[in-house]
């Protein structure tokens, strides 16, 4: 048994000649909120559809709960709740009837319907036909359906798509509470870094079908290396003086930058500048934001933010 709830190896999906998903090795541990991040069209949804058995991989393997999806698909699906892209619903049924149609298949007690309705706060609207629901309510119904079978793994594809800010906040709180309260592992995909940043514990970044980063969110933040920015009176001369004294710094837009300098180095540079009679106006630390790292990783063309 592997320690991973989801483990894919060389997962590849070809549409014609293009590889929409290209040798993806996903690793999701139990109890994590795994943020699956990537620009639009990077292969997130295709990967998720393969995880759920909706699409067939062109190559590679998928193991979930230590089981091969090709051999034990139903046993896996029984433990998985999902919401793929847009919420699925039967418009002619009410919220409760929608859940009932699914409940029969999952063989869970009727009381579970009331439980999930109250989790997503739809109890009041349970008797209304779903075709009259707002997108946010449909999305919540989708979550309720996903939770109906007491899943051990929840796969949510862009769950905040089309929600208003309060809906997004609500959804985020809901997702964050799941692992704590119910011990559920969650995979949540998004094209918004800020969203993943606020709820995920693990991050996988995919672009053009390839995984380019997969680790904890802390590791991603650590890559946000800092630099020291110096603002002085005569930049040009100061930079040259530093260089002749053996300190390599960057001169960018009338500021001097020290990359990854230790405290001692910074102190020495400042001291040297003072000794050469330069006026130092500011010494600032500059941190790269996660957004900048993300753009660096995915290449600028993603158009993410």
């Amino acid at each position: 048994m592997s320690e991973f709830i989801i483990e894919t190896k060389n997962l590849t999906k070809k549409f014609g000649a293009t590889r929409v998903v290209n040798h993806v090795d996903l690793k999701v541990k139990k109890g994590e909120i795994y943020g699956f991040l990537g620009p639009n069209g990077a292969g997130k949804t295709t990967t998720i559809r393969m995880l759920l058995g909706l699409a067939r991989p062109s190559k590679g393997s998928i193991h979930m709960f230590g089981k091969d999806i090709r051999k034990e698909k139903l046993a896996i699906l029984r433990k998985v709740g999902s919401l793929v892209e847009y919420p699925s619903y039967y418009g002619h049924l009410t919220a409760r009837e929608n859940l009932e149609a699914v409940r029969v298949l999952l063989d869970v007690p009727k009381s579970r319907i009331d439980e999930v309705l109250s989790i997503v706060r739809l109890t009041k609207d349970a008797k209304r036909p779903v075709k009259g629901f707002s997108l946010g309510m449909k999305q919540r119904l989708g979550i309720a359906t996903a939770l109906l079978g007491n899943p051990e793994l929840l796969i949510l594809d862009e769950p905040t798509n089309g929600l208003d800010p309060s809906g997004i906040l609500e959804m985020r709180e809901l997702i964050k509470s799941m692992p704590k309260e119910h011990g559920i592992t969650i995979v949540v995909s998004s094209h918004l870094l800020s969203e993943v940043d606020q709820m995920a514990t693990q991050v996988g970044i995919i672009t053009k079908g390839r995984i380019i980063f997969q680790d904890s969110i802390q590791k991603l933040r650590e890559q946000a290396s800092s630099s020291i920015k110096l603002t002085v009176n005569d930049v040009e001369a100061a930079w040259k003086t530093l260089l002749s004294n053996g300190y390599t710094t960057d001169l960018v837009q009338n500021n001097i930058y020290i990359d990854r300098g230790t405290d001692d180095q910074v102190a020495a540079i400042v001291k040297s500048l003072v000794e050469h009679d330069f006026s130092i106006y500011r010494v600032e630390e500059q941190k790269k934001s996660l957004e900048e790292i993300f753009l660096e990783l995915t290449g600028k063309e993603g158009g993410l933010l």
Partner: peptide, 17 residues
């Protein structure tokens, strides 16, 4: 009603053949 509201997606990710 499966085509209309994405029902296929939901139905086929449930444990059914």
């Amino acid at each position: 009603y499966e085509h209309a509201g994405g029902g296929w997606k939901q139905l086929l990710t449930l444990p059914v053949h």
